[in-house]
């Protein structure tokens, strides 16, 4: 049997960081010292620098930055993870259909993907979110997911095209296995590695895009904290209170880098020839 993924040291390290971040997000209500939204005392405690009472300082509305960072992690990570799930599902489905279907199906699907990729993603997102009244977290997930599957579908299609030429697929056909069985047992497992890797990279991407949208004011609406709108709020006080943008910024970088590390390690770990 192949060893489970988490027995690989590099996968474990990356996953450990992500797990800590994820746990912090999940346990935000327990960990956060203050309420992230409530604006207690506007006069006395605005833009305080980091201290024992407020380890990451406070923002313009006297809110504790650490608390907002923890609650923001929940929003940012959950939106990114779910949107990536949507993107992977759609992308894998379209990629399998294009790669294993008839040339006509392949042609139509891939031209649609080409057309989709020709539209700048942030522009598309801005358009949809601007037209969509009162974007909730669910719509944001859907919109992010449905605009992110295009590269995955191409990747999967390319892998499927190469896998379907392999002798073991020909052998499976020669032995009378059905199309579905060949697709699910022989093709899908052999394209799983690039899918997982593109997923791990995709989460990082989507966190950044969500941060960008919130930064531009169409993502997660205030007063709910997300890393993106925290950075957006912080930009006006970069000189006087740099911790406002730095805290969510660093959190963002750590998350994306460790996701990339995991993606890289997963790729190596899933290679059945490596021990």
């Amino acid at each position: 049997m192949r060893a489970p993924l988490w027995t690989h040291r590099r996968v474990r390290r990356g996953l450990l960081i992500i797990a800590v971040l994820g746990l912090a997000a999940v346990a935000a209500p327990l960990l956060a010292p203050y309420d992230p939204v409530e604006q207690p005392d506007l006069a006395g405690s605005q833009l305080l620098s980091p201290s024992l009472a407020h380890p990451l300082g406070t923002d313009l509305y006297s809110r504790d930055v650490l608390s907002r960072l923890l609650y923001g992690a929940r929003v940012s990570l959950a939106i990114a993870a779910l949107a990536t799930l949507v993107a992977l599902t759609v992308g894998t489905g379209v990629g399998l259909a294009a790669g294993y279907g008839t040339p006509a199906v392949d042609g139509v699907l891939m031209r649609l993907v080409d057309a989709g990729l020709a539209v700048p993603r942030v522009f598309l997102l801005l358009l949809v979110l601007a037209l969509w009244e009162g974007a909730s977290a669910a719509t944001l997930i859907l919109v992010l997911g449905l605009t992110s599957w295009l590269p995955t579908s191409r990747l999967v299609r390319a892998e499927v095209l190469s896998v379907r030429q392999r002798d073991y697929v020909a052998a499976a056909r020669a032995l009378g296995l059905s199309r579905w069985r060949i697709l699910s047992r022989h093709v899908l497992p052999n394209v799983a590695t690039p899918i997982l890797v593109s997923g791990a990279l995709g989460i990082g991407q989507i966190i950044l895009v969500e941060a960008g949208l919130s930064f531009l004011g169409v993502g997660v609406p205030p007063p709910t904290a997300s890393w993106g709108n925290m950075i957006a709020d912080g930009q006006y006080h970069l000189a006087s209170a740099p911790w406002l943008a730095a805290a969510p910024g660093i959190a963002l970088i750590v998350t994306v880098v460790s996701l990339n590390l995991v993606a890289d390690a997963v790729q190596d770990a899933l290679d059945p020839r490596a021990a």
């Binding site: 002798d167 073991y168 052998a171 009378g176 296995l177 047992r185 497992p189």
Partner: peptide, 24 residues
């Protein structure tokens, strides 16, 4: 498909390529 595998089996040329690497 009723014939493939059930009536006529086939052994391909290269056993290294004809077995799926990710299935036992």
């Amino acid at each position: 498909r009723r014939v493939r595998g059930r009536e006529i089996g086939m052994v391909f040329q290269d056993p290294a390529l004809s077995l799926n690497p990710v299935l036992s």
